[in-house]
Amino acid sequence: MKILKIVGWVALIALVVIQFIRPDKNITENTDYVAAFEAETAPSVEVKQLLETTCYDCHSDNTTYPWYNNVAPVSFWMAHHVEEGKEHLDFSDWANYSAKKKDHKLEELIEEVEEGEMPLKEYTWTHGEAKLTEAQKKLLMDWAQEARSQYHIAQ
């Protein structure tokens, strides 16, 4: 019983100490952080809204953080998800992608949405508005397929 008490105290102290360690937040001062992407791919108003609701938090230079991001270890978990998301696709870095890479990223977007892999279930648990209906998935995939056509020509 004494060991459990010691382990409990150590865990509590570690939890308190970790609250003072903060990962960097993914927030930019730049208000047009996805302008190049949107200008080039020309999403409709509805598609743009879907991208804002379901994609940009993890795949751009600006994340809207919920209140619980201020509690460790959740803050570390979210920072890792955003970092990983931007490694796979960063809409804010779109201008620096080659035409071949842009085509591939849009192809991956279609696959991930079609397979129900994106947006992540962990994201939709707390962001109910990000859960895509079948009609929204189709709209997003059709737009991405249309946007891909310009990169086939550019290659």
Rank of each mutant, 00 (worst) to 15 (best):
D90W: 00
H127F: 03
G128F: 06
E83T: 14
F76W: 09
H152F: 13
C58Q: 02
A144Q: 11
A95Q: 10
E38Y: 05
K5A: 12
T53S: 14
T28W: 04
V17W: 05
Q155I: 15
F20E: 10
A147D: 10
D103Y: 15
N26P: 04
W67D: 14
T64S: 08
F91Y: 07
K131S: 10
A99D: 12
T31E: 10
I27V: 02
A42Q: 15
L4M: 14
W67Q: 09
M1T: 12
T28Y: 02
Q155N: 15
V7Y: 01
W143M: 13
K131G: 01
E115H: 14
D32H: 14
Y65D: 00
D90R: 01
Y123E: 11
L50K: 09
Y151D: 09
T41M: 03
S98I: 11
I3C: 06
I110R: 09
A135W: 03
N69L: 03
V74F: 03
Y97N: 08
V47Y: 04
T133I: 06
E134Y: 02
H152P: 09
W77M: 13
H81R: 09
K100P: 00
L140H: 11
C58N: 05
Y68I: 11
S149Y: 04
P119A: 07
A130L: 02
A42Y: 04
Q49A: 15
F20N: 10
Y56R: 07
V82H: 00
L132I: 10
V7D: 04
T28K: 01
V45W: 04
L50I: 15
W77K: 09
L140P: 07
I21G: 05
W143F: 07
D142Y: 05
K48D: 15
D57F: 00
D32V: 13
E111V: 11
F76E: 07
E46P: 00
T28M: 02
W77P: 01
E146Q: 08
R22F: 06
E29C: 01
K25V: 02
T124M: 08
Y33P: 01
N96K: 12
W67N: 08
A35L: 08
E38S: 11
P23G: 04
E115T: 11
V45P: 07
T31L: 10
K121W: 12
A36M: 09
T54A: 15
L139T: 11
E107D: 14
G85W: 01
M118T: 10
L132M: 13
H104N: 14
D57G: 00
I18A: 12
K25I: 01
V47M: 05
N70S: 15
M1W: 06
H127A: 13
E117W: 06
F37C: 04
Q150P: 14
P43Y: 02
I110L: 08
H59N: 09
D24P: 08
T63D: 00
D57A: 01
T31M: 06
K5W: 07
K105G: 00
L89Q: 10
Y97L: 12
Q136R: 05
M1I: 08
C55R: 01
V10I: 13
E146L: 08
M118L: 10
I21T: 05
L120K: 12
E117H: 08
A154W: 09
A79N: 03
T31Q: 12
N69Q: 06
E108C: 08
